[in-house]
Design a protein around this nucleic acid. Sequence first.
DNA 1: GACACAATAGTGACCGGTCACTATGTTGAA
DNA 2: TTCAACATAGTGACCGGTCACTATTGTGTC
Lengths: 343, 343
Amino acid sequence: MTERPEDPRRPTIREVARLADVSHQTVSRYLRSREGLKPQTLARIDAAVSELDYRPNLVARYLNTRRTGRLAIVMPELVASNPTRILSGATEAAHEAGYSLELVSFGGGIDARTERLLELADSGQVEGILTLAPIAPSAQGRLGNGAAIVVSADFDDEMRSVGELIDAAPVRDMIERLSGLGHRRFYHVAGDLKYASARARKDAYLEAVDRLGVESAGVFEGDWTARSGFDAMRALPHGALPTAVIAGNDMVAVGVMRWASEHGLEIPRDLSVTGWDDTEFGRFLTPALTSVELDLEGVGRNGMVRLVKAVTGRDLAPSPGPVSRLLWRESTARRDQTPRRLG
Amino acid sequence: MTERPEDPRRPTIREVARLADVSHQTVSRYLRSREGLKPQTLARIDAAVSELDYRPNLVARYLNTRRTGRLAIVMPELVASNPTRILSGATEAAHEAGYSLELVSFGGGIDARTERLLELADSGQVEGILTLAPIAPSAQGRLGNGAAIVVSADFDDEMRSVGELIDAAPVRDMIERLSGLGHRRFYHVAGDLKYASARARKDAYLEAVDRLGVESAGVFEGDWTARSGFDAMRALPHGALPTAVIAGNDMVAVGVMRWASEHGLEIPRDLSVTGWDDTEFGRFLTPALTSVELDLEGVGRNGMVRLVKAVTGRDLAPSPGPVSRLLWRESTARRDQTPRRLG
DNA sequence: GACACAATAGTGACCGGTCACTATGTTGAA
DNA sequence: TTCAACATAGTGACCGGTCACTATTGTGTC
């Protein structure tokens, strides 16, 4: 319908060459690396470039080099946690490395996602893929000659992985401290166990509970949602209440807290609850949620740093600073001495 | 470091042509539209294509057509609300239209963002841009010959806009109903007024308050964060408490609720609070938050539909169904008859 | 001054598609 | 039968860069 304006064609390398009175190849050399040119020639090209406001056509360049200058990032379709900060860190790093980042969001289950991801890798459209969603292990043998693939938020012994979301050390710290506060019976509402981070937290939970010789009311296989936190509590056998719940993230913790309030349990007097992600709503909840602050931009950046390394061999500066920090707030406290039961 | 595997070059149009025993041009025709070919020729090419697993090289195609097949989506750097669902709807629609979607996240203020956005539009890299972040009105005259730009989450009389996030009708419904429940003094904690949605809700608030002849404790200019909800309450002159707070979104409402609980006010007995976005945490809060459910995938999709229309003139099917729905929950109730004051 | 050699610069083909134009085959009316 | 007119297919250039190779200039040494 709307006619595009007529041919706003950008100047080409040959026009620059003509203006600078050199050959197109000299301009090409100038573009790739300014070495091997006489200062005088260089200056002439400099002038021509800025006069014409020349910018190289990356698409044309690709035809020879096979380098598209594009990476892709795959988002899980449904996410309880907010991937914005991860995306933000990832785009920044990608741009820093001179890449543009294509956003892909694959519906369907893990298998459909894996299939489409491999197709994308094989399409030649992108040089590498960072996926925030888990993919099927079956993919591992099929990476052959396509783009490099880095999986964040999940890992697999055979595949490259970021591994940072996976650091579950704070879970151990939580349980140690809570045990020191008199808690003897714990419960873990895990996130979606297709995610390595969820598996790592679960393992850390089991390890700590075992090591400290405290009781566990079990591990509930949730999916990062508040609903799953609520359901996890409901699934608990009557009379077998824990005094501390380690929730997979803040959202899950909200569900746990809701269940508690519906059953007349007061937090933290009757039940201590911990979250993960240090979300803003968690900080402003009543009681404010004990949680783990994550450097999510750093996670995104580091995933991208790995991908860039895999694709180009080039080392980008990773995110400085620690990835996680445990923040004690009002939702955790010394265990109440008088045992309660459901109202 | 890692050597890329040697030349996994995909088959070209000429190889397909050779195998099908036609000219490359015939294959090219076949690719663009399968019309004007003898059924027999078509079948031969079909066979060759599938035998070679041929897929066209979109980059090469661009060189002639100037169509990159790429659109960009600009994310605000910091967002209180979760844009995931919008992104998801937008990518789906973009892919449906045969476009890939590039993710861009510009730091800096609105002016820096606008500058970089215009640069991107001018780069020829993308055919269109959908921005979820507001851009400066000054940009409007400068769209000249670059990519089409559609602004979601904001609008400007001169610029195309999605307009759907902007529908603030539920604000009117909220105030009407609350007024029917006996509320006479309202307060509005607006979102970032650089966003059209925030402005629209504010206008709807002022209009409804005025029309119904109820009192307003004012409008606080927040920024979509829980912190701003908390601060808004703190900024209220002592003794001038409203009985109902219309918060810009659920996150803001959480901040309001936190302040209330710190000051011994019980919700909804002493204060009714409404949110916006129907977040999962809002549903599981105690009390559960009255909020507005949004079809965010639909918002993303419709933004993209507009962009595709602007770029190609083609009409993609917009999202069906209504965009928002008001959900009454526990955080709103009949106004308590015995007036309270801060504890 | 002559020569080898390095430092610079230029020429033309090519990447994988599309475009403009031409060539051939087919059909139907005169 | 002939020829116009249409349907179908082919030829070669071109998009804007890079690559491989060749040509020219400059420098140092004998």
